[in-house]
Amino acid sequence: TFVALYDYESRTETDLSFKKGERLQIVNNTEGDWWLAHSLTTGQTGYIPSNYVAP
Rank of each mutant, 00 (worst) to 15 (best):
T42H: 03
L24R: 00
E31I: 13
L36M: 08
L5Y: 03
E22C: 03
R11I: 12
N29M: 15
R11S: 13
Y6F: 13
L40Y: 08
E9I: 13
N29C: 10
Q44F: 11
W34E: 05
L5T: 04
L16T: 04
E13R: 04
A54Q: 12
G43A: 05
T41F: 09
V27Q: 08
Y6P: 00
Y6M: 11
Q44Y: 08
I48R: 00
G32V: 12
D33K: 13
K20L: 06
T12C: 14
T30C: 08
Q25W: 15
N28A: 12
A4K: 00
A37Q: 00
F2L: 07
G21D: 06
K19D: 04
E22Y: 02
W34Y: 13
E22R: 00
G46V: 01
R11P: 08
D15S: 09
N28W: 11
T1F: 15
V3M: 07
G46H: 00
N51P: 05
D15Y: 12
E9Y: 12
E9P: 05
T30F: 10
S39L: 05
K19L: 09
A37Y: 01
S17Y: 04
F18T: 02
Y6G: 05
P49G: 03
P55F: 10
G43N: 09
A37I: 04
A37K: 00
W35N: 02
A54R: 11
R23W: 15
A37H: 00
H38G: 03
Y52N: 04
S10Y: 03
S50E: 04
Y52D: 01
W35L: 08
Y52C: 07
T41W: 12
L40T: 07
S10G: 15
V53N: 03
D15H: 15
D15I: 10
V27M: 14
L24C: 02
V53H: 03
S50T: 06
R11W: 08
E22P: 00
N29T: 14
W35F: 06
L36E: 05
Q25L: 15
V27F: 13
W35P: 02
Y8V: 01
D7H: 05
I26G: 02
A37V: 14
K19E: 06
D33F: 15
Y6N: 06
L5K: 06
V3G: 02
V27G: 05
G43Y: 06
T14K: 14
T41I: 12
K19M: 09
E31R: 14
R23F: 15
I48G: 00
T42E: 01
G21Q: 02
V53M: 07
A37P: 00
D33A: 11
F2V: 12
